[in-house]
Design a binder for these strands. Structure first.
Lengths: 354, 354
DNA sequence: TTGTATGCGTTATCAT
DNA sequence: ATGATAACGCATACAA
């Protein structure tokens, strides 16, 4: 019968007007039935509306709602690099929490081009996202300041943005590093090398480097700790330098002192593992090893790579939850959620020295 | 001065009305300047509008545009499992192509719950996405039929949906499998075992299994091929069964005949690698190995895992491009893009038999 | 070439 | 308790 009035545009989906017509009431009534269910509804009218909604399979258009209400139930997720397993894992947790709360995720990948950070935010702002989950560099000129966000709440994941008032969710880097170092030292590894990606400006990298230094210091004069910043494979000398650092580390071992490397994340772990292959060395033999970020393949390399597993799902979930709380009206000072990691001991940090 | 008229809602961003006012023209003129730049514009008015746009940093609200036009410049991406590296890799390529074309991605992860496929599509449809990129099971009751899509175009990635008229982008499974088998046979591996995830209904798995059979057959009676379907770790007997299959395979080797396993994707590769560790075997020794999907860690397992690398970036890019062409009005029958894989030979398929 | 008026699907403010 | 009606920000058919 009643073919849709609005012939021009969106085909198919029923509108609130259709429901109103079918129920013999006004659009306002339908809207109220949907939104303010609790008060103001006469039983029979409610029933009629409900029937019409069911019959027409009506569900409101979020776009129109967004336009009218000012909020979209959309969350912008911008990620420095989707290729990074950590980011994906977080993404996964966040997306789940969002789904549960009825939010949808708009994804923007920076592909490690930090310069596009503002571009990403702007695009997302245009789409009226209600808030942001940011896992970006957060450094340099392109770093997002509070007002690029146009007042929308944001939660930072893993990487702080200097001076931005926002919730922050991350691994408890200090505690985690302490666990790692204590484990290594307890295993007789006293010559330690921490290998990180270039730290410039990335808070989590800086924090781990600092924590590494503190831990070593706390262990007393007996342990010697150094830091090496490993570069991209784009850098032609990256391999040489890394191999060199590893060789130097091995030289420090001897007369009862064992040497181990601590990798700052799974990307570094990969590079170190490749270097070990180049050198023909085995983890747990020439050098001990513990790496941040657990991966599915960690147990398959040699006798297994010990890792400090980040609670990635929890981090993602917490981030989304944090943000959604804000969206629901929670006010209050920026919060910090530092989640504990879990040390997974495998062969690389226990095997006897060769 | 002129504080925004619309006090109630969205704070901050300038609207087309503001620009019109600032330029001393009507909203329609501004709209035309923005959309139909080519025709209908008097030089001085255009200049004034342009100035006003620049001054107010105006950029149109995609939500409002979507409401008015019926299209949103949004693309819905639904993925069976973001944890799957293949999916992420595709996602990455797709997101890039979308960004380049000015589209944004709305992400929905199924977390391997195929039952939520419709739910995902529905949510996305509500948000007026212009089209879909689907990398889902595409099987069973929840499988998406053409009209769940409400007429929106879709492109299927890696997995076909039976009976759905849609573009399809995937690895050329037949060719790839042929390459793999030929390589193995050339290396003297004549006892072949193909290990797949449970094939039920997933087209890519079925295709590869079929292709494997065909290849073996084409090689003549000299090569013996079998297929094993490996189950989730959720299945308590999964390990035993897999280990058993591997042992049986090894038994087939001997008197000059070498045995090799072909893994259907990186998930299977992981399982097989774990099994090898359990059995204390080495790839390239007891058994040869080639796995579909290249991973960053493939070169680090033992003497390196040979892999059939999928052109994931290209697949994602092609999928998005395909879809965007449709959105730009391209009509025509469903297309099929079968992209070639690349065999990466490492130790697992060349080392001498132990 | 430009302006006016209307519609897109909702919500919300006012009456009633 | 319910119904007109005006936003929301934009595009467009129609007038001028």
């Amino acid at each position: 019968m009643s073919t849709r009035k609005s012939v021009g545009r969106a085909p198919g989906r029923a509108t609130i007007g259709d429901v109103a017509e079918a129920a013999g009431v006004s659009k306002a009534t339908v809207s109220r039935f949907l939104n303010h269910r609790e008060r103001l509804l006469s039983p029979d009218i409610a029933a009629r509306v409900e029937a019409a909604v069911a019959k027409l399979q009506y569900s409101p258009s979020p776009m129109a709602q967004a336009l009218s209400r000012g909020r979209s139930r959309l969350i912008g997720l911008v990620v420095a690099d989707v290729s990074n397993p950590f980011s994906v894992a977080v993404l996964r947790g966040a997306e789940k929490a969002c789904q549960e709360a009825g939010y949808l995720l708009m994804l923007f990948n920076l592909g490690n081009e930090g310069s596009r950070e503002r571009e990403a935010i702007d695009a997302l702002v245009r789409y009226q996202v209600d808030g942001f989950i940011l896992n970006t560099l957060g450094r340099g000129a392109s770093a997002v300041d509070a007002d690029t966000l146009h007042g929308k709440p944001a939660v930072l994941v893993d990487r702080r943005h200097p001076g931005m008032r926002a919730d922050f969710v991350s691994l408890d880097n200090g505690e985690a590093m302490q666990t790692v170092c204590a484990h290594l030292v307890a295993g007789g590894f006293t010559e330690l090398l921490y290998i990180s990606e270039p730290s410039k400006g990335v808070s989590s990298r800086r924090e781990r480097i600092a924590a590494f230094g503190d831990c070593a210091k706390a262990q007393g004069a007996n342990v010697a700790a150094q830091v090496f910043e490993s570069h991209d494979d784009a850098d032609p000398q990256a391999h040489e330098e890394l191999d060199g650092a590893l060789k130097a580390l091995k030289r420090r071992a001897g007369r009862g002192r064992r040497a181990a490397v601590v990798a700052g994340n799974s990307v570094v772990t990969l590079r170190v593992a490749a270097a070990m292959t180049r050198l023909g060395w085995q983890f747990g033999q020439e050098l001990g090893f513990v790496g941040f970020d657990d991966t599915e393949w960690a147990s398959l390399i040699g006798s297994g790579l010990s890792t400090m597993a980040q609670p990635t799902d929890a981090i993602g979930h917490a981030a989304a939850t944090c943000l959604i709380e804000r969206l629901r009206g929670f006010e209050g000072p920026p919060r910090q959620l530092l989640l504990p990691g879990q040390l997974l001991v495998r062969g690389s940090s226990v095997a006897a020295k060769g």
